[in-house]
C-alpha cells in the first residue's frame, strides 16, 4: 500500500509551503506541509502529492552496501577453512 516515490526538491515556495520536485525528467508540484527543514537538492518521498519524509543519503548508501556485504559473508563461508580469521 501507499505508493510513494523518491524525488529531488528543485524549488521551494515558503509562502504556500509547497515546492517542485524532479523525478528524472519529470517535474511535479507538491506540498511540503508535512516536512521540516527541506532544502533544494534534498530527496523526499512523495505520496499523494505530499512530501512525506526526507531520504537520508547516508542511510541509503549503508543499505546498498549491505547488499554487497551479503555476498562477502557468502564468500567467507565458501573460502577454504570456512572463513575463520
Amino acid at each position: 500500500m501507499c505508493l510513494a516515490i523518491p524525488a529531488q526538491v528543485v524549488e521551494i515556495d515558503d509562502v504556500s509551503d509547497s515546492g517542485t520536485v524532479a523525478l528524472g525528467p519529470v517535474r511535479k508540484r507538491i506540498s511540503l506541509a508535512l516536512v521540516d527543514d527541506v532544502s533544494v537538492g534534498d530527496f523526499v518521498l512523495i505520496h499523494v502529492g505530499y512530501a512525506l519524509n526526507k531520504i537520508s543519503p547516508e542511510e541509503a548508501e549503508r543499505t546498498l552496501a549491505l547488499f554487497g556485504e551479503a555476498e562477502l559473508v557468502e564468500e567467507l563461508a565458501a573460502a577454504p577453512g570456512g572463513g575463520a580469521t
Binding site: 505508493l3 524525488a7 523525478l23 528524472g24 525528467p25 519529470v26 511535479k28 512523495i46
Partner: peptide, 12 residues
C-alpha cells in the same frame, strides 16, 4: 524513455 518510466512511477 526515462520520462515515461518516471511518470509511470509517479502515478503507479
Amino acid at each position: 524513455r526515462p520520462a515515461v518510466s518516471a511518470a509511470c512511477e509517479l502515478l503507479g
